[in-house]
Design a protein around this nucleic acid. Structure first.
Lengths: 243, 243
DNA sequence: CGTTCATTTGAGAAACCTCAAGATTGGTGG
DNA sequence: CCACCAATCTTGAGGTTTCTCAAATGAACG
């Protein structure tokens, strides 16, 4: 039995999995590379679905727009993530995919992907895992939104961001949020002022530090401290739950 | 060009699509039928992933549980929906799938599905569309949660429920919520008291009516009235948005 | 017919939002 | 290099929504 060492099963360190997937895509599919700059849309809500996009570099926000004009950031995506998955069923994209930085996406025709998948099942696995991970992420977002107070959601956001970087082999002790307070607030279901207050409180508690000149750069000495900060905030609520 | 009649492409009336899919599954895959009763779990969070489940009857809630014990209903599922999709990537299910009524699910081994899909691409389409629809639904939930006040979320919930029934060819003028106020509140990110107040207000405005004896049965004379009720609640906020 | 659970409703408290004023930053042009 | 502008961010004070707590009502079950 090869049960002794089974890490590779579902966690080849993240960075390895992403690199493998990108190589697989390059090797088996016709890919259209596309450079985007901050603010560019990869696609827009309502546009006819045809391609999926895989992030090669940069990062992206998904913006859902209601009929009445309400806007909601429903997801953030980094290297190795797939964009446009919500367009498969409806036949058109459900959100705007907006670049938050200069980056590169690989456009993959969905019909070509399906055809190629018959000969290379690993492609299917990659696609399914991408969709499944996004579902898990959405569920976690919902959990945070509904069960955590504002300050804890801010801490959770930083932890999410740090985890995303860590999975991709990047440093997490010093991160740059390429989002305004307003964008973060929209994503977290609160106002930009609440985000600002939350970050200030985190800094006051020494959980994070602002790097001088510019409050977009944040130092996180210990990522675990974010988790214990959240639990610290929840402690009074647990007490209340016991009647 | 066959552009004149292209409704069948992505909208074969819902009920037809679901019936076709169930027939397809029956015809091409080994299926394990399983009857569940109210409160039964189809699977639980953390359990090793192996099967996907398709709802044949009844309906189900997906409950996400955090490490610290916070609970969150992250989805509701009806006939034709797939359960367990969030387990594909992680190798274990992410939520508890709990029956809200007596029902039947069809267990399908994921590996068998992948194998069969090579010979019957329609299976792949069905799976992908199910995942894609769930992503769209999650994004819409997030939008409602973050941008609508409590009463509007309650109205939106009823509209969602009515739409789900309509897609399955069921009557929508009279619906029975098999959920407690507490469960609805959890799903909508509010307390059970707020749900109760929201429903009372909807009844006071004649948007809904309680059918005598038991407040689980609701009459919705006009589903469109729910939409205009939401817009009515948002009107003051739009005015504020213009500074 | 009593017990239990779900629901409704009210009153006060708390979290968060709104509004407003200053502070900081980055970019632009003199 | 410096001054200025626009955009972003911070912080405070007060208002509003929603939550919490409590009590009463209604329905379901044995």
């Amino acid at each position: 039995m090869t049960e002794t060492i089974r890490l590779p099963k579902s966690a080849p360190s993240g960075i390895q999995r992403i690199a493998d997937m990108l190589r697989l895509l390059e090797g088996t599919l016709p890919i259209q590379r596309r450079i985007v700059r901050t603010g560019d849309s990869v696609y827009q809500a309502g546009q006819a679905f045809g391609c999926l996009y895989v992030v090669n570099s940069g990062f992206f926000k998904m913006v859902n727009l209601s009929d009445e004009g309400r806007e909601q950031v429903v997801g953030l995506h980094f290297k190795g993530d797939w964009l446009g998955l919500d367009g498969i069923a409806a036949g058109h994209y459900g959100c705007d995919a907006v670049a938050m930085d200069t980056g590169e996406v690989w456009a993959i025709r969905y019909d070509a992907l399906l055809k190629a998948a018959l000969g290379a099942p690993a492609l299917l696995t990659a696609l399914h895992e991408a969709m499944s991970r996004e579902l898990v992420r959405d569920h976690d977002s919902l959990l945070s939104l509904c069960t955590l107070p504002a300050d804890a959601r801010v801490a959770g956001f930083l932890r999410y961001w740090a985890d995303a970087l860590a999975q991709r082999g990047l440093r997490t002790d010093q991160i740059t949020l390429h989002m305004t307070r307003a964008e973060i607030g929209n994503y977290l279901g609160m106002t930009l002022e609440s985000v600002s207050r939350g970050l200030s409180r985190l800094a006051r508690c020494d959980v994070i530090h602002f790097i001088e000149k510019g409050r977009r750069d944040i130092r996180i000495p210990k990522v675990e401290a974010l988790t214990s900060f959240i639990q610290h905030l929840m402690a009074p609520m647990e007490a209340a739950a016991l009647h």
